[in-house]
């Protein structure tokens, strides 16, 4: 990986493919990416491109898991407690509607977005954009818009942050009540691991390049 030396004719049809580092703007010639490896910026060290490897499989698997798990946790209790002979349980939907009155009511809407709507929307958008790419089919209309949407939603889909919130909440009341974990809790726990696995290999620039190449072919 060497920085490109001459500015002239960088974008000519016959010129080698170049890419700009999104962190520091340095230009690089796109050389062959070693299998399982990555190209790094020689100036700032940021990842320029990764070898695609199983990236699509991982993203698609995590998208399907996300949709199934969030939807099932909507209606099945994932946490339950009991104390002094009384007990109560909660589903994802009930949790979002915890802010049901007064000044905090708008938060219910925000919570529904952050832990239900945005994670599911992002997963569906990813599947829509990338499943045809993975299967070697023609890209669907709006593929780029769908993948752009997924990119914009990425910081705001917080299913795995919510999961950590569950653990903190359980410990907070652990001394006061008996805590039970519903089956949906373990499904949610699975989400965290799947999302973490996806995030560790996700390289937006690499996927954009694959979409671009496919859409030109």
């Amino acid at each position: 990986m060497q920085p490109v030396d001459t500015a002239s004719r960088l974008l000519d049809a016959g010129a080698p493919e170049i890419i700009a580092c999104t962190v520091c703007d340095a230009l690089h010639e796109v050389k062959e990416i070693p299998e399982g490896g990555r190209l790094r910026c020689t100036r700032c060290g940021a990842t320029l491109l990764r070898s695609p490897g199983k990236a699509l499989d991982r993203i698609l698997a995590s998208s399907f898991a996300m949709v199934i798990l969030v939807l099932s946790a909507l209606f099945f209790p994932f946490l339950q407690i009991s104390a002094s002979g009384l007990s109560s349980a909660t589903t994802l939907l009930q949790t979002a509607f915890a802010f049901d009155s007064g000044f905090t009511a708008p938060l219910a809407f925000v919570l529904i977005l952050l832990i239900i709507v945005l994670p599911v929307t992002r997963a569906v958008a990813l599947a829509y954009a990338l499943l045809p790419l993975r299967l070697g089919l023609r890209l669907l209309p709006g593929t780029k818009a769908a993948f752009r949407l997924a990119g914009h939603l990425r910081p705001w889909s917080m299913a795995e942050v919510f999961m950590v919130g569950c653990v903190v909440a359980l410990v907070k009341i652990g001394g006061l009540a008996r805590v039970g974990l519903g089956p949906a809790f373990w499904e949610l726990a699975l989400i965290v691991m799947i999302v973490a696995l996806e995030a560790s290999t996700f390289c937006e620039k690499t996927i954009w390049r694959m979409i671009d190449q496919k859409s030109r072919s």
Partner: peptide, 11 residues
């Protein structure tokens, strides 16, 4: 914020 929501809904 999530912890507050979970505690309110659950307990």
């Amino acid at each position: 914020v999530f912890v507050v929501a979970i505690l309110t809904a659950l307990v």
